[in-house]
Every structure is written in structure tokens, then in C-alpha cells.
Design a protein around this nucleic acid. Structure first.
Lengths: 214, 214
DNA sequence: CCTTTCCTGGAGCGCCTGCTCTACTATTGC
DNA sequence: GCAATAGTAGAGCAGGCGCTCCAGGAAAGG
């Protein structure tokens, strides 16, 4: 008998995934041939299809692996005493990879794939629903505490999520600055959650920093 | 001799473009074969390539045709006396097609293509820059008039544009309602332009309408 | 009428695709 | 050391691709 070494297996799998991520980000799913992934990973096609059933499966795995981490972040956010802290925590977590150069390409490929590939759509939907639910719980708590939200709690949650998605897509623009964008996004979230961010102190107009929300 | 009939030519071209738009929205550029476009348009491949040089060219034409209309809208917006009217005009113009069922698919395909196809990226960039410039002119005028913008005028313009893009992408979500989304977006734009939208009157929290900005 | 050009469908070409299959080596348990 | 199986490379296959090319119908000018 010979048993499988799960650790080595996972390492090799991750190696292939990393190589595939670069190709998918650059050329998309349809635009990336399996031969290209093999070349990038330095393996033969036999090896590739030993680890993954289909090309689509590779792309799915790239996002499926993030699901548990997001679930954990949601749980931590809800556990916070002050809802605004939870929202801040969740927003920060979801913005972690904003500076990753692969992100815009992968985000574009993902948005595209959601409209095309039903199985992938369900995968992403599960993740989205999870985050949405957490955000809605938190915004509902804010509303219950008397915060004057501009929209119903569910809609506020939807907008926060929309802003996050938009951030990842705009990360590919030529003069994109993650720090500025993050700061401004927090400001917008502050307004959406009924914070005092609407009171604009004079002089802030030209300063990219200076967000007192915490 | 025989002369070309430009009117008939344009009609046929538009017919092919309409058919292609449906296919591109459903399957993307790579996922749509030229044979499929031919079938959808009820023509042979000879005809298709008589009107368009390449498959990519068909996709480009789909967006290139909108450029002059957007330019005109920008000009009209800048010509307005009150900058907030101009912004409102431009935002409304850019949200015209939000209810079109093809829009989410085409937007996804476009976002994807921008990251892949350099020529298409330049095409979209030209359109984006044009709108951005108009918005920035208007927000700068607002700032000069003493309006307390939350960010520098250029950044406010960028955010308005980002919100518009996000709207088109989220238009594919299951419970998307164009009217609600538009109303809320105008509210956000109101805040971004230093309007009084931040003062939340009680009872607005559950009302999807009621935006007094004009 | 004839000529010229536009317009058209579809056969077909060369190429590339995702994936399978086979032959082989490396590593494990006994 | 032996058997069993995990892991690997790459040739090869069937099918689909974008696009070309050609033969002929349709329509305009003279």
C-alpha cells in the first residue's frame, strides 16, 4: 500500500492555483488555455488534471478557498459589542487584498463568470449572502440604537457591499491609490451608517487623510 | 457602376449589432462564436465579415456608437447655469439604460474586456475621461461656490462615476430595483456634492422615494 | 441591354482547444 | 524486496474556432 501525503498534495495544489491565478487575471478564464497554466506552473497536463477535474474547477477553487476565512470574519464582526466596530472590522477585512496587483484582473474575471457560469454564481452568491447577512445584522442594530440611517438597514448593507465590489474593480484604474480610496470609502460608510461624517470640517477638502471614524 | 446605399447599409449593420449584443451579453466575447452571431442575426458568415472586420470589432462598435451621444450630454451638462443641475442631468443620462435587461451582461463583458483588450480599453478610457472631465468641472464650480464637498472636486467626480459603474454591474442581482437604486444613488450623489441630503428627515428611512434634489 | 460593384451564403482551411490515455517513475506499507 | 498506488510528462484526439474565399444573385449607372 501507499497512502497519500495530504500536506504535499496541498502544497502542490496551492502552487498550481497560484500560477493559474496569474494567468486568469491576465487573460480571463476563456482566454487562458490549460496548456498555458501548465507552462506557468511548470507541469504537464497530466499533472494538472490529476489535481483538478476541469479548467473551470481551478477557477472555482481559487474563490472557494476564501469562503471559510470570510465566514470567520463575519462571525468576529457580529460578536463585537458596538455595531460600528463590527462594520469597520468587516470592511477592513474585505479590503485586505486591495493592493494586490492581481486583484483587478481576477475581480473582472469573477464578475464576468458570475453572469455566465451558474455553478460559480452560486458559489459567489453564498459568500455574498453571508457578508450581506452580517452587515444587515449590524446595520439593524445601529438603527435600533437610534442612528439615523439614510436608507433601510438592508439597503445600507447592500450599498456598503456595492462600494466594496466597486473598489476592487476600480483598483485597475491608472491613478488608483489604495490608501486614498480606503480612507474615502470609510468616510462614505460613515455617512451610510448615520455617523457624523457628514459634518465636513473646513480644510478637509484637500486632505486625503484624516478620517476620525473608529 | 453601382453606388452603395448608406441608409440600408446602416440598417443592416444595426441589425447585426443588436443580435450580437444579445449574444455577447449572454456568453461574453470569447464565449460567443461568430457562427452564433450569424445564426442570431439570420445571416451567413460572409455577410458578417462584410460589415465587420473581426469579432472584436463588432464588440467595439457596440460601445463606440455611444460615444457621440455621451459627448453631447456632457456638453449640455456643462452649459447649465447651476452646477448641481448639470450633475443631475449627467447622472440621469448615464442611468438611462439601467433597466435594459442586456445591461448587466454587457457591462460585465465590458469590464472584462477593458482588462484584456488594449484597444477597447482606450475606447472606454476616452469615454470615461470625457465624463470625468465634465463632472470635475461641475464639482469644481460647486466648491468655488462654497459648497462643503467631502473630498476634493476630482475625487468627488471619481466617486460619482464609480457609483454609476457599480450600478450597472449590480443591475444583475436578483432583487435589483432600478427605481429604488436610482433614488438612493441620487441621495449619495447629493451627499458627495455637499448638498443637504445628510439631514435625514424622520420617516425617510423606509421610503424609497422622496429625493428633493433638483 | 450590359457592366460594374455590392451583397450574400456557405464550404472549407489551418489552428488551437480541453481533456484523455498511456507509459513510466517515486514513494509508501508490509 | 515486493506489491500497490500516487504522481508525472506528454503524445494525441475529436471538435470547435475565427476567418477566407468563392461563386453567384441583386441592384444601380450608362
Amino acid at each position: 500500500m501507499r497512502t497519500v501525503n495530504p500536506e504535499e498534495h496541498a502544497r502542490k495544489r496551492a502552487h498550481i492555483l497560484a500560477a493559474a491565478a496569474g494567468e486568469f487575471a491576465a487573460y480571463g478564464v476563456d482566454g487562458t488555455s490549460t496548456a498555458r497554466i501548465c507552462r506557468a506552473a511548470g507541469i504537464g497536463s497530466g499533472t494538472l488534471f490529476h489535481y483538478f477535474a476541469t479548467k473551470r474547477d481551478i477557477f472555482h477553487a481559487l474563490f472557494r478557498d476564501d469562503l471559510p476565512r470570510n465566514a470567520e470574519a463575519c462571525a468576529r464582526a457580529i460578536a463585537r459589542d458596538r455595531p460600528e466596530d463590527g462594520i469597520r472590522l468587516l470592511v477592513d477585512h474585505l479590503l485586505t487584498d486591495l493592493a494586490d496587483p492581481l486583484v483587478p484582473g481576477l475581480a473582472a474575471a469573477a464578475v464576468f463568470q458570475v453572469n455566465r457560469d451558474e455553478e460559480f454564481a452560486r458559489l459567489i452568491m453564498a459568500d455574498t449572502a453571508q457578508v450581506r447577512s452580517a452587515l444587515e445584522t449590524l446595520t439593524t442594530r445601529l438603527a435600533a440604537a437610534g442612528r439615523p440611517l439614510p436608507f433601510p438597514p438592508g439597503r445600507v448593507a447592500a450599498w456598503i457591499q456595492g462600494l466594496l465590489d466597486a473598489a476592487y474593480l476600480s483598483a485597475g484604474e491608472p491613478d488608483f491609490d489604495p490608501a486614498t480610496h480606503t480612507a474615502e470609502l470609510r468616510r462614505l460608510v460613515g455617512w451610510l451608517t448615520g455617523g457624523d461624517a457628514s459634518a465636513t470640517p473646513p480644510g478637509t477638502r484637500t486632505s486625503p487623510q484624516g478620517d476620525p471614524t473608529r
